[in-house]
Design a protein around this nucleic acid. Structure first.
Length: 298
DNA sequence: TCATTTTTTCCTGATT
DNA sequence: AAATCAGGAAAAAATG
């Protein structure tokens, strides 16, 4: 009955490290922050911490963190609308936010407003600190990811999950009044038909949704997973261990591995969320019960 | 708290 | 040889 994970203590394999994109280097609840020499942190604190000085990349980081924190599916907002640096971000009005991100904009606006005034203290500090740690690599990254080739399918990604948003932060929207208590706050970008959509998704995403969202957000996906056949829903893990680490991060489980993640994936076969693709390693295919991955699926 | 569903962990064995 | 794939079992987590 007793399980000892002596061999799981650290990251499973060396290959995991090499796969780990700087972007996704695990953000643990910064335990060592507090125990760290203040001088060390201070340097980073003053500059990296303040949203005004964020790079575009850090803006993305913040976006991702904020959405995660509120359990909002990343596909529900067009990331390319936030291809701005910290300075620009901070100069955006409430309206700008709602225009850029629909209803989620309110939340984002509130978040960034808080950060501006708090000077970046709090949890974000930790997050941003982590990212500044790997800054050099990150910058390489952001360069290589800047030119997104195809924004179009960011949009096609959203529908279902969008609905959890209201559920998870209605208060934020309501309590944001200061700037515009007005009409423009209701220009949510819902695409006409509010048809038979089931808002079932409880909280965070399930594994398959997590995978789908990575695929659907190229700008958040620095070569982690790639479509093999977009129209058939066939995809392949390029950096299996990195994806596992990312999944682990989401689940707050630092010992996640591809081995374990793949077991969960295999359970999807029976439920027809995934279809088996044999012969090809690291290749999976969405099944009839997987929703929201098609380009024409909205 | 309970029941059910999903995910995690571990493992043995097969494949590539 | 090292990774992956396959699933069974069972525990743990997440959800309603």
């Amino acid at each position: 009955m007793v399980r000892h994970n002596t061999c799981l203590m650290s990251v499973p394999s060396a290959s995991a490290d090499s796969q780990l994109p700087a972007t996704w280097s695990p953000h643990y609840p910064c335990t060592d922050m507090s125990t760290m020499a203040p001088g060390y942190v201070g340097r980073l604190w003053t500059q990296e911490m303040q949203p005004q000085f964020w790079s575009k990349f850090q803006v993305w980081e913040w976006l991702q963190q904020t959405l995660d924190m509120h359990q909002i599916d990343a596909t529900s907002i067009p990331f390319h609308n936030f291809d701005v640096d910290g300075r620009q971000l901070c100069s955006m009005s409430f309206q700008d936010f709602t225009r850029a991100a629909g209803s989620v904009g309110a939340l984002l606006y509130q978040s960034i407003t808080d950060l501006k005034w708090s000077g970046g203290a709090g949890q974000y500090a930790a997050e941003m600190f982590t990212s500044s740690e790997v800054k050099t690599e990150m910058e390489e990254f952001s360069c290589s990811m800047l030119p997104f080739k195809d924004d179009s399918y960011i949009y096609s990604a959203s529908p279902p999950d969008l609905y959890d948003v209201k559920q998870s932060f209605p208060t934020a929207v309501a309590g944001i009044s200061p700037i515009s208590g007005g009409p423009e706050s209701k220009r949510l970008h819902n695409r006409g038909s509010v048809g038979p959509i089931k808002r079932h998704n409880p909280r965070g995403t399930h594994l398959w949704e997590f995978i789908r969202d990575i695929l659907l957000n190229p700008e958040r996906n620095p070569g982690l997973i790639k479509w093999e056949d977009r129209s058939e829903g066939v995809f392949r893990f390029l950096k299996s261990e990195a994806v596992a680490q990312l999944w682990g991060k989401k689940k707050n489980n630092s010992s996640m591995t591809y081995e374990k993640l793949s077991r969960a994936m295999r359970y999807y076969y029976k439920r027809e969320i995934l279809e088996r693709v044999d012969g090809r390693r690291l290749v999976y295919k969405f099944g009839r019960n997987a929703r929201g991955w098609r380009e024409s699926d909205k």
